[in-house]
């Protein structure tokens, strides 16, 4: 029996649940927070979604069948909670995808917990130009350091499609940043 299986047993046992869940929070709280934060952009939103994620994890643990690792399963829940949050916000604000992408940078700048300098804002602007799904894939790979195999379980997409989207995103970002720099040089 693997240590993860034992840990899951502790998580669902009445006797060890509290201690095990504390450990789970220590292990995953920050990682999931950053994963969520990049999807929902602001700290306040990320905080709400993070709480919902862990409550859902807690409720769903007895039904977890271990078809994927606990790590991947929790990322999937965090991703789904984030998407649900984004979709419900879209409905509330009647935003189209285009205006939402434009709003990405504005929302980011308005967040008091964004402290980006010029270079960071430049990268964020470039990321905002990517189609949503492609941006998520790039962020998951580049910043959350997820494996393509894990992303298949989280996103429910084919590995080939994810790889293509990631490499296209990398190419686009490099090209866009280079263009911006060339423009700055020519203007400067």
């Amino acid at each position: 029996m693997t240590s993860e299986t034992n840990f899951i047993k502790e998580l669902i046992s009445d006797k060890h649940r509290e201690k095990a869940f504390n450990k789970l929070l220590d292990m995953y709280q920050e990682r999931l927070y950053w994963h969520i934060r990049k999807l929902v952009i602001t700290h306040e939103n990320a905080n709400d979604v993070l709480q919902n994620t862990f409550i859902r994890v807690f409720k769903s643990l007895p039904k977890f069948q271990q078809k994927s690792s606990l790590h991947t399963w929790m990322y999937r829940i965090a991703y789904n909670e984030s998407i649900r949050f984004i979709e419900s916000n879209k409905k509330k604000q009647h935003n189209s995808l285009d205006t939402l992408n434009e709003g990405y940078v504005n929302t980011l700048i308005s967040d008091e917990h964004f402290d980006g300098d010029e270079a960071q804002l430049k990268l964020q602007k470039t990321l905002s130009k990517l189609p949503e799904k492609q941006r998520y894939i790039f962020q998951m790979k580049y910043y959350d350091d997820l494996k393509f195999r894990e992303m298949v379980d989280i996103l429910g997409m084919k590995e080939g499609t994810i790889k293509t989207a990631y490499y296209n995103a990398v190419k686009y970002i490099e090209k866009d940043i280079l263009n911006i720099e060339l423009l700055e040089i020519s203007e400067g």
């Binding site: 920050e30 950053w34 934060r37 964004f114 960071q120 804002l121 990268l123 910043y143 959350d144």
Partner: peptide, 15 residues
């Protein structure tokens, strides 16, 4: 490291 990267690359911070 993840927190460092997010701060360094993306300018994101937490209270």
């Amino acid at each position: 490291k993840i927190e460092e990267t997010h701060k360094k690359d993306l300018g994101l911070k937490v209270p």
